[in-house]
């Protein structure tokens, strides 16, 4: 897997590079701000070597505000095949909504804390690179809290809500089953119940499923 890292803190950039290299991935470039990120990706793409995934920080020079999100949105529009994982010290549902606008294919938004769980983090990077979704549990909680469909959500059982949250994070059925220590069949049953209660038509692809759930929550 070929990765580009955009992060202004040299310390973290090197840490991430080491972590990913350690796992046998190829870090093609490391940059320190949003403009440089877009430039690098454009150059790589022009050379026919578009990376699989970009890992970008939100707050970077020169304005130290939300460069990372803006750059990510631009890149996603320009290169639909490129996975973009945004990392931040804080998560905001507004940024999540912007990142997910249109498609949840190959997109991720995680708290920086999540790098502490190395394996899960690398899994998330790989998932995004392959076109999956990785949303932080905090973002999902915000989206659930923010949703105007509280009446419908209240009709879900606690376990179904849990499954809904994990689904929105972008996990596959088997990952959800592992997390909740239940059988795959049980998860499938929960999922179909949820879709029934929310009035959504079940879809097979994982990321389409995520999108359906998120659109539902945001509407």
């Amino acid at each position: 897997m070929r990765v580009v890292i955009a992060e202004d803190s040299v310390l973290l950039r090197e840490g991430l590079t080491r972590l990913l290299t350690d796992r046998g991935h190829d870090v093609v470039a490391g940059v320190g701000d949003g403009d440089a990120l877009i430039k690098t990706i454009t150059e790589l793409a022009d050379g026919g070597e578009l990376p699989d995934v970009v890992v970008a920080d939100v707050r970077m020079p020169p304005t130290h505000t939300d460069e990372g999100v803006r750059a990510a949105v631009t890149l996603r529009a320009r290169y639909p095949d490129l996975g973009v994982l945004v990392l931040s010290q804080y998560v905001e549902e507004r940024y999540a909504t912007e990142l997910l606008a249109g498609s949840s294919r190959g997109v991720g938004y995680l708290l920086k804390d999540r790098v502490a769980e190395v394996r899960e983090f690398v899994d998330a990077v790989v998932r995004v690179a392959r076109g999956g979704t990785a949303l932080d549990p905090e973002v999902v909680a915000q989206l659930l809290g923010r949703s105007r469909k509280q009446d419908v959500l209240a009709a879900l059982t606690p376990r179904e809500r849990e499954v809904l949250g994990l689904m929105a994070e972008g996990r596959t059925n088997s990952a959800i089953a592992r997390q909740l220590v239940v059988s795959d069949g049980a998860v499938e049953k929960h999922v179909s119940n949820i879709f029934l209660k929310l009035g959504l038509s079940p879809s097979d692809g994982d990321h389409r499923r995520v999108l359906a759930v998120l659109t539902y929550l945001n509407s």
Partner: peptide
């Protein structure tokens, strides 16, 4: 530290203004 930082000044308020910041507070209510 994240909670503290948000209590000091939420970054999204500087970046995007009241609308985004208040949505975020509301979603935590």
């Amino acid at each position: 530290l994240r909670d503290l930082a948000r209590g000091i000044h939420p970054a999204v308020l500087t970046d995007r203004g009241l609308d985004a910041a208040l949505s975020s507070v509301a979603s935590r209510c």
